[in-house]
């Protein structure tokens, strides 16, 4: 007790707030779960759609992805998927990479990659859906 008190006037709660999971762990945990729940129907829809379009020509594939409902579902799936993947990869990194600097760099890299690739994919879907004839 006395050694803790000597580390300043901050309460144990205040100190805990600044540490690790006390900061953002719950949000991370919940986001991992709600993206997982959202992905269940979206992925099932996606897999069925892909199976039905194996070997599809460009026109047929464009028509499928471009239909408004499909484009919205695809964009939602991509958003949930990249968010979920980023959160998951962050846990993996936190488990194996212990050097603080390397850990932060890797996490930032996966966040950036998820944003860029997710953004590119959603951009492609919008272009397919709204862009008219390519």
């Amino acid at each position: 007790m006395s050694s803790e008190q000597s580390s300043g006037r901050r309460s144990p709660l205040s100190r805990a707030r600044g540490l690790g999971s006390a900061r953002s762990g719950t949000t991370h945990f919940l986001s991992q779960r709600w993206t997982a729940i959202a992905l269940v129907p979206l992925i099932i829809w996606f897999v069925i759609g892909i199976i039905a379009h194996i070997g599809a020509s460009h026109v047929v594939a464009m028509t499928w992805v471009g239909r408004p409902l499909n484009a919205v579902l695809m964009a939602l799936m991509l958003g949930a998927l990249f968010h979920h993947a980023q959160l998951g990869l962050q846990v993996v990194i936190e488990d194996y990479v212990h050097a603080h600097g390397a850990k932060i760099i890797l996490i930032v890299l996966t966040k950036g990659a998820a944003l860029i690739f997710g953004g590119l994919a959603i951009f492609a879907v919008l272009r397919i859906s709204l862009g008219g004839v390519a």
């Binding site: 993947a85 492609a124 390519a134």
Partner: peptide, 16 residues
């Protein structure tokens, strides 16, 4: 694997 999906969509958007 998700990156392949991204590439597939981008290729589709880019043309036949």
């Amino acid at each position: 694997g998700a990156l392949v999906l991204v590439a597939w969509l981008l290729a589709m958007a880019a043309g036949p």
